[in-house]
């Protein structure tokens, strides 16, 4: 089970420009449980394309993707129930505007479960459950999704996928466009979901602080190539960060600066601000 990419390449075809290859020869495995993966890389590096392979929204132009034991290859296969794969792997798109369409939040959240042949009563329950999960109270269920703020829309769109009860949750830039507090809240929420249900969560993000603090595994794409697959602790010790257009998290940057400036004996690899403060106190009180 899980998701297995085997030498997957994807090329977009367009008549006007020459064809564009978005990802090259990617091989990787994602388990159904226990993983908190951050997928990072510069804009246009192929992150969204890779994510859309994870629930068979797009098909590889080379190689195969195995999702929950079902093999997805270049062509649409009539015998395959793609909806089952999309229920197995829930993918939340970057912009909630692409999916909200009902007159109430509740109906919109129920759209996914109903498509998967869940009974209306159960779908209603799921809607209530998932709106609470994303940190909104149930009064939102009767509101019009188009009158919500950007952050609220985002939460509703995430609730719409959560209500489908996927085994793996994939989120395309869920934290972009939110204030720092909202970002942290959402990350906390995903971590909670992952800890409570043990489901694997894959998040695309540009925020290195969040990556360092939360991820158990990071995947780095650069120009469509998978250049790194490992823990964030390893990642931020790598020399090639700049060539992959990545920066260090704030904590490491500050601590490294302090270390060099004042020749302190501190370990700059601290995940949170609190830990960084503690580390500084430790060396300065000596």
């Amino acid at each position: 089970m899980g998701i297995h990419f085997r030498q997957v390449s994807h090329q977009y075809f367009s008549q006007q420009n020459s064809d564009y290859q978005a990802i090259y020869d990617i091989t990787l495995s994602i388990e159904d449980q226990h993983e908190f993966i951050c997928l990072i890389g510069h804009t246009g590096s192929g992150k969204s394309t890779l994510a859309q392979h994870m629930n068979a929204l797009v098909f590889p132009t080379k190689g195969t993707v195995e999702i929950a034991g079902v093999l997805v290859s270049q062509k649409r296969d009539k015998k395959t129930d793609y909806n089952r794969l999309r229920k197995h792997v829930g993918l939340v798109f970057q912009f909630p505007e692409y999916q909200l369409f009902e007159e109430t939040v509740e109906k919109d959240i129920m759209f996914g479960p109903l498509n998967f042949k869940v009974s209306p009563e159960v779908a209603k329950e799921k809607a209530l459950e998932s709106i609470r999960l994303v940190g909104l109270n149930e009064s939102y269920l009767n509101r019009n999704p188009f009158n919500l703020s950007g952050g609220e829309k985002k939460r509703v769109s995430i609730a719409g996928i959560l209500a489908m009860d996927p085994e793996i949750l994939v989120l395309d830039e869920p934290t972009s466009g939110l204030d720092p507090q909202g970002k942290r809240q959402l990350m906390r929420l995903f971590k909670d979901i992952q800890e409570k249900t043990n489901k694997t969560v894959v998040i695309i993000t540009h925020d290195m602080d969040l990556v360092y603090e939360y991820a158990t595994r990071t995947l780095v794409l650069s120009d469509g190539n998978l250049v790194f697959d490992g823990t964030p602790d390893d990642l931020f010790r790598r020399e090639e960060l700049a060539t992959w257009s990545l920066s260090l998290p704030q904590t490491i940057r500050v601590l490294k600066g302090l270390k060099e400036q004042f020749h302190l004996e501190l370990n700059p690899y601290q995940k949170t601000v609190e830990e960084a403060v503690r580390e500084i106190e430790k060396v300065t009180s000596r």
Binding site: N83, R86, F93, F95, Q99
Partner: peptide
């Protein structure tokens, strides 16, 4: 944009 919307809804089981 239509293509993206279609993918987003397909992701919610609207095949």
């Amino acid at each position: 944009e239509a293509n993206k919307i279609m993918l987003a809804q397909a992701s919610r089981g609207a095949d």
